[in-house]
Design a protein around this nucleic acid. Structure first.
Length: 576
RNA sequence: GCCCUCGUAGUUCAAUGGAUAGAACAGAACUCUUCUAAGGUUUUGAUGUAGGUUCGAUUCCUACCGAGGGCACCA
């Protein structure tokens, strides 16, 4: 039983002592007050009892405090009534010391739990489409997906990371249409670097999309081409297709590597089509789906949703059917305990329809599946669209940010290899943090100058705090001062240890709510507390009897910060 | 038109129905002879509007105003 549960128990007993029967105990809270001067835990139980007991909350609180004081446990130093009737609990210094010791003992395992022990979780994110750019929206999906994966992993679950790419569909037809328009250039383009070949394909996609929208003849041709690609009936087109697909995939692998994601499997739309059509047939047989105007549709209106097309009138399955097939296939391949799908929130309504259909077809799969919609990356001027070509690619953002960091470091005394390594970690950290610091579902208004900061509330701020701690620990080792938690029990416990030991509960909340931002914000608070501590105290000092204690705190900080950043998918450089 | 998100300092973001609404950036003033100033200290400044539920509302409900997204063969 942890301390929170122990205190909760004591409160319940006290309430029963007041004459409330066990079933009538209100659903009170026991939480950390915002203000540290309000103690380490606070409960609102007296406020909630005011009505049933027909007494003032202050009076009730006083009575409860009296009872609590009789049964006090050693971890609690002081209990008092405050404000409109809150009861605040102040924990003892030795409790905090004991908890910090746990950090030093558990090291990189600190923060993990076994809530999902022996479970298997499949998580899909990033999902870039071959023939299109890997843009900063994918960077966003990847940052969130990777963080959620790592947090779920810390819950003890086995994680299967997958990505899903649309290697068939209208966008491919649009690209190939535009490539066919400039057929004579192809052999020339193929001599260029993979990067330039990729640009050629991305441009073609934009051109094809424009033609599709503005030119009815082109639209008809592209629609026909889509069917040809789907049927694989034209050898020449098959070859173009293979070329474009490979160039894209090669590029994606490079970006994944830089971001620190390794997918166990990459699903492609082309490989789920059979499953999709099978699922559609089953849906038709069970009257879940129906035929209408030559297409297969789902009438969502019956479920408070809207109608979606699963197979179009040309017999080609749409995204909805393919995703349905994917859901079924994932279950067959991996037999998961839970499945998480992360996409842009523009697909929220679509996923509601899809999950409803899956629920009718495979109730068990539905119960185990959760969709997380992340916000969009938008420019102040409007939405980014790869169809229109006004996008920032993932790789160009990574490179630009890296440039800025290298520029900042140019006068520093590091070798160019060191600088290269640091700049890579710092740029990825800065980008990931800027995505992870806010609620996953909300949009990021992207402004290159403002969105990526290297100061204050930023990735580099956290990395920097960690690097400084590391540097102190090295100095302590040189001077032979060892971390010791016992030398300073009597002292007043500052903000740093109090924050440090909250790490496991923050991880737990971030995982349960699929909300990495709780962790990001916590780490910033923690780094801030450490930076303050760093500015006020000289940690390594042979003449200071408190030095071993301060070294211990620094070490604990270093462990927690590193573990926390690791869960966010952010690496820490040796120096910076 | 219907459905879903969301409106918080000048800006970008926080706040499991709780106490004095937190940060960061920008602005103002300090701070490197001390373990890395990508740091620290101080300071100015905000809940779209109108109701309702509640001991207590940024949070829940209703209406309005405003932004974004989704609504049949794109993904």
């Amino acid at each position: 039983m942890n301390i929170k549960e122990q205190i909760t128990d004591l409160i319940k007993k006290a309430v029963i002592d007041l004459g409330i029967s066990e079933v009538d105990i209100p659903a009170f809270t026991l939480e950390h007050p915002d203000e540290m001067s309000h103690g380490d835990f606070a409960t609102n139980v007296a406020l909630m009892l005011s009505k049933p007991l027909k007494k003032s909350p202050v009076q009730i609180a006083k009575e409860i405090v009296e009872i609590l004081n009789k049964n006090k446990i050693s971890e609690v130093d002081k209990i008092e009534m405050a404000g409109p009737g809150f009861i605040n609990f102040y924990l003892s210094p030795s409790y905090f010391m004991g908890e910090v010791k746990k950090i030093l003992n558990k090291k990189e395992l600190y923060g993990q739990n076994d809530i999902l022990k022996k479970q298997k979780t499949i998580i899909e994110y990033t999902d870039p489409n071959p023939f299109k750019e890997f843009h900063i929206g994918h960077l966003m999906s990847n940052s969130i997906g990777e963080a959620v994966s790592r947090i779920i992993e810390a819950f003890g679950s086995k994680i299967i990371r997958v990505s899903y790419g649309g290697d068939v569909g209208l966008h491919v037809a649009k690209s190939i249409y535009a490539v066919l328009e400039q057929e004579s250039r192809i052999s020339e383009v193929k001599k260029n670097s993979p990067k330039e070949q990729l640009t050629f394909w991305a441009k073609s996609y934009v051109e094809g999309s424009t033609a599709y929208e503005n030119n009815p003849e082109a639209k008809a041709e592209i629609d026909t081409l889509n069917k040809v690609i789907f049927d694989k009936s034209d050898e020449h087109i098959n070859k173009l297709y293979e070329w474009g697909r490979e160039i894209s995939i090669e590029h994606f692998q490079e970006v994944f590597k830089r971001l620190g994601t390794h997918f166990a499997h990459n699903f492609w739309e082309s490989e789920v089509i059979t499953d999709a059509l099978k699922a559609v047939d089953e849906g038709l047989q069970k009257n879940i789906l129906e035929k209408s105007q030559g297409a297969v549709i789902f009438k969502g209106e019956n479920y408070g949703l809207h109608t979606r097309v699963f197979v179009n009138s040309k017999g080609v399955p749409t995204y909805e059917a393919k995703e349905l097939g994917l859901g079924v296939k994932k279950m067959e391949l991996y037999d998961f305990d839970s499945s998480i799908v992360i996409t842009g929130n523009e697909q929220d309504d679509y996923f509601k329809v899809l999950l409803t259909v899956i629920g009718l077809l495979r109730p068990k799969v539905k119960d185990k599946t959760v969709h997380i919609g992340h916000g969009m990356l938008r420019f102040a001027t409007g939405k980014m669209s790869s169809r229109k070509g006004n996008i920032i690619t993932g790789i160009s953002l990574l490179d630009q940010v890296k440039e800025i960091i290298l520029e900042k470091m140019k006068d520093r005394d590091f070798t160019s290899e060191e600088k290269e390594l640091m700049a890579e970690m710092i740029s990825v950290g800065a980008i990931k943090y800027s995505v992870l610091k806010q609620v996953a579902g909300s949009d990021i208004i992207f402004d290159f100058d403002k969105s990526l900061s290297f100061e204050g509330d930023s990735g580099p701020y956290l990395q920097y705090a960690c690097v400084r701690a590391k540097s102190i620990l090295e100095k302590a080792e040189k001077e032979g001062i060892k971390a010791n938690m016992n030398s300073e029990q009597k002292a007043e416990v500052g903000e740093l240890p109090k924050l440090l030991i909250r790490f496991p509960e923050i991880v737990e909340r971030a995982g349960k709510e699929y909300a990495p931002h709780y962790l990001a914000i916590y780490l910033t608070e923690l780094a801030s507390a450490f930076s303050s501590f760093y500015a006020q105290e000289i940690v390594v000092d042979k003449n200071d009897p408190k030095s071993p204690y301060k070294v211990a705190l620094t070490q604990a900080f270093s462990i927690v910060m590193k573990n926390g950043l690791n869960l966010l998918g952010i690496k820490v450089p040796e120096k910076m």
